[in-house]
Simulated scan of single mutants.
Amino acid sequence: MERRDVVVHTLGPAGTNCEAAARQWLRDNAAGNGTVVLHPTLEDAVPVVLEEPARNVLLGCVVYPRLHELVFQNLSSMALRECFMMPTHNMVLAAPSRGPIETVLSHPAPVDLVSGRGYRIQLSTSNAAAAADCAKAVTDACITTRPAADANNLLVIEDFGPVDMGFSIHVPHQSEVYPR
């Protein structure tokens, strides 16, 4: 199988660090060819990856909550095959408008960027989902990526910069991308 036939399944919606990592992995491993499919959670992606085990891979982030469960609960059907590093998008605290911030929506992984500030934290499935919901005024602000903030017309209150991050590639045992 040529690497251009690979489908990388990862965390969405558009604007996540996982999406950026999936596109980078395709550039590095499939000459930029292949497809990225975004899912609400990595847990939702696993059964889809297993539907076409020869060509699908799952891309995770090493700080994804419960990544260990994805690995150990799926040992009979898939395996961790690769890890790589890349910087995330700039991580930002963003809001629909300037004003007092009491509630912040965040994926569990970057929530510590604003710990100790007295905000009431609500959790989201991804940084990009946090931005989309924040734009609907679900909360006063969110922790998200710069592209997700921009896509949702949010004001950047604070820019924490990029974070060096690890990303993992998980493949079904019947994979032609990484044959056993």
Score class of each variant (00 low, 15 high):
residue 22 A to M: 06
residue 83 C to D: 06
residue 40 P to D: 10
residue 166 G to A: 15
residue 140 D to M: 10
residue 54 A to H: 02
residue 87 P to A: 05
residue 144 T to Q: 03
residue 136 K to L: 15
residue 14 A to K: 13
residue 138 V to E: 14
residue 63 V to Q: 12
residue 112 D to Y: 11
residue 121 I to L: 14
residue 14 A to G: 13
residue 112 D to G: 07
residue 161 G to F: 07
residue 180 R to V: 15
residue 46 V to P: 00
residue 21 A to V: 09
residue 66 R to Q: 07
residue 50 L to D: 03
residue 50 L to R: 07
residue 49 V to E: 03
residue 60 G to C: 12
residue 113 L to K: 03
residue 158 E to D: 11
residue 149 A to T: 07
residue 10 T to P: 00
residue 27 R to T: 08
residue 56 N to Y: 04
residue 20 A to G: 06
residue 41 T to K: 02
residue 160 F to T: 08
residue 46 V to G: 00
residue 148 A to E: 12
residue 154 L to Q: 00
residue 144 T to A: 09
residue 124 S to M: 03
residue 94 A to L: 01
residue 47 P to C: 10
residue 84 F to Y: 10
residue 158 E to V: 06
residue 100 P to Y: 11
residue 62 V to W: 10
residue 128 A to E: 11
residue 33 N to H: 04
residue 55 R to D: 03
residue 96 P to T: 08
residue 53 P to A: 13
residue 130 A to L: 05
residue 112 D to S: 11
residue 68 H to C: 02
residue 106 S to F: 08
residue 141 A to D: 08
residue 87 P to R: 00
residue 128 A to G: 01
residue 166 G to H: 11
residue 140 D to L: 06
residue 69 E to N: 08
residue 133 D to V: 02
residue 71 V to G: 01
residue 59 L to K: 11
residue 167 F to L: 04
residue 45 A to D: 00
residue 137 A to S: 13
residue 52 E to R: 13
residue 123 L to H: 14
residue 111 V to R: 05
residue 77 S to T: 13
residue 157 I to E: 08
residue 109 A to Q: 06
residue 64 Y to Q: 12
residue 165 M to W: 12
residue 168 S to P: 00
residue 176 E to F: 13
residue 145 T to C: 10
residue 157 I to M: 11
residue 57 V to E: 05
residue 129 A to E: 14
residue 12 G to Y: 08
residue 171 V to D: 07
residue 33 N to I: 00
residue 170 H to C: 11
residue 177 V to S: 06
residue 32 G to A: 09
residue 161 G to P: 12
residue 60 G to S: 15
residue 58 L to E: 01
residue 23 R to S: 04
residue 144 T to E: 04
residue 94 A to K: 02
residue 166 G to R: 03
residue 35 T to A: 10
residue 120 R to S: 15
residue 147 P to H: 09
residue 143 I to C: 04
residue 27 R to M: 09
residue 97 S to G: 01
residue 104 V to N: 01
residue 75 L to V: 14
residue 39 H to A: 00
residue 138 V to I: 11
residue 165 M to K: 05
residue 28 D to S: 14
residue 15 G to F: 09
residue 29 N to D: 02
residue 104 V to G: 05
residue 162 P to T: 07
residue 37 V to Q: 04
residue 68 H to V: 11
residue 102 E to V: 13
residue 100 P to A: 15
residue 28 D to W: 08
residue 100 P to W: 14
residue 30 A to F: 01
residue 178 Y to E: 08
residue 34 G to R: 01
